[in-house]
């Protein structure tokens, strides 16, 4: 009979789940890579599961549930969209001023038309979606992740399940709809503020004509800019709401996890938003149609 058994390893029990039989083998490099790959794949499945379940719940029956979800969506829009108007106004105004300053430094004789073209390329196509998404991520992304994390800690999500209330529908869907609508609406508002600020400051500082600025904007804009604008807004809004909800709901039971998950959510949202924005820009303006500068 062999006596080579590891004396530190307890004997295996015949019972189904003997903790003494729990034995984590030391993994080599390949094993560690494998475990990491499995962990990443599992996280990705869970992440997409959060979005999929929420979107699928759009078609769920129940007029009472629909009324409740609508009410929560409105309150989320109030916080995510309406209450962010002041901050978006200030940043839009400052971005417009910065654009005029930088353009006048590079091209001292810059006219309204040049400013209009730069406004379209820099602000309307890139900064408007990205800055708006960053503002919403900073304000609402952290708030959503923290709120849902605390709901997990205080067993509120378990309570919803016990009451037969679907968390993907009641918790995730309203926040997702609110971030999408808010980001698109705030992008439009941000663009208007930036254009008005640029036109006013350029007129006062450089003496540029607002009519020339309008002509420059008209020449630089492409027909599908509107489609891309909406696609960027909807995509970025989805990333903010989706990732924030996912990280909030991934809190297990400890209050110390809440700020960690909220911070992780914002980091992932920022990374996701920049990657999505860059991807769409590269795809459309390189491959589909080059703007006529």
């Amino acid at each position: 009979m062999s006596t080579s058994q590891d004396p530190l390893r307890p004997p295996r029990s015949t019972l189904p789940y003997d903790p003494r039989a729990e034995y984590r083998r030391k993994l080599g490099v390949l094993g560690s890579l494998g475990r990491s790959a499995i962990g990443t794949a599992r996280s990705a499945v869970e992440l997409f599961g959060t979005l999929g379940l929420a979107v699928a719940s759009l078609g769920s029956p129940g007029a009472g549930a629909r009324r409740l979800v609508r009410a929560i969506t409105f309150s989320q829009i109030l916080f995510t969209g309406v209450q962010a108007v002041g901050l978006v106004s200030a940043i839009g105004l400052l971005i417009g001023a910065t654009l005029v300053i930088q353009t006048s430094l590079i091209v001292p004789a810059a006219d309204g038309e040049l400013l209009g073209k730069i406004l379209v390329a820099v602000v309307l196509r890139e900064l408007s979606p990205l800055v708006t998404a960053i503002i919403v991520a900073g304000r609402s992304g952290t708030a959503i992740a923290t709120e849902l994390g605390n709901m997990k800690v205080h067993q509120e999500v378990l309570a919803l399940i016990a009451l037969g209330v679907d968390p993907p529908r009641f918790v995730v869907l309203p926040r997702l709809i609110a971030t999408v609508l808010s980001v698109v609406a705030l992008m439009v508002y941000f663009s208007v503020v930036s254009v008005v600020a640029t036109a006013t400051i350029a007129n006062v500082v450089l003496g540029a004509s607002p009519l020339d600025l309008r002509a420059g904007i008209s020449r630089a804009l492409l027909p599908f800019d509107l489609v891309l604008f909406v696609a960027k807004g909807a995509g970025l809004g989805t990333i903010v709401g989706w990732v924030a909800c996912h990280y909030g709901l991934s809190v297990k039971s400890s209050p110390t996890e809440v700020p960690q998950k909220a911070s992780a959510a914002v980091v992932r949202i920022l990374l996701g938003c920049v990657a999505y924005d860059t991807g769409l820009t590269a795809l459309f303006y390189w491959l589909v149609a080059r703007p006529p500068y």
């Binding site: 379940l53 769920s60 129940g62 549930a65 605390n150 709901m151 205080h154 067993q155 509120e156 378990l158 309570a159 919803l160 399940i161 016990a162 009451l163 037969g164 209330v165 679907d166 968390p167 993907p168 529908r169």
Partner: peptide, 25 residues
């Protein structure tokens, strides 16, 4: 747990009193 309303549609109505809260804050 992702679709608890299905149980209600099947006639399963659960009430749960948690030891540490569970009320929507």
């Amino acid at each position: 747990p992702n679709r608890p309303s299905e149980l209600v549609h099947h006639g399963v109505r659960r009430g749960f009193v948690f030891s540490g809260g569970g009320l929507l804050s």
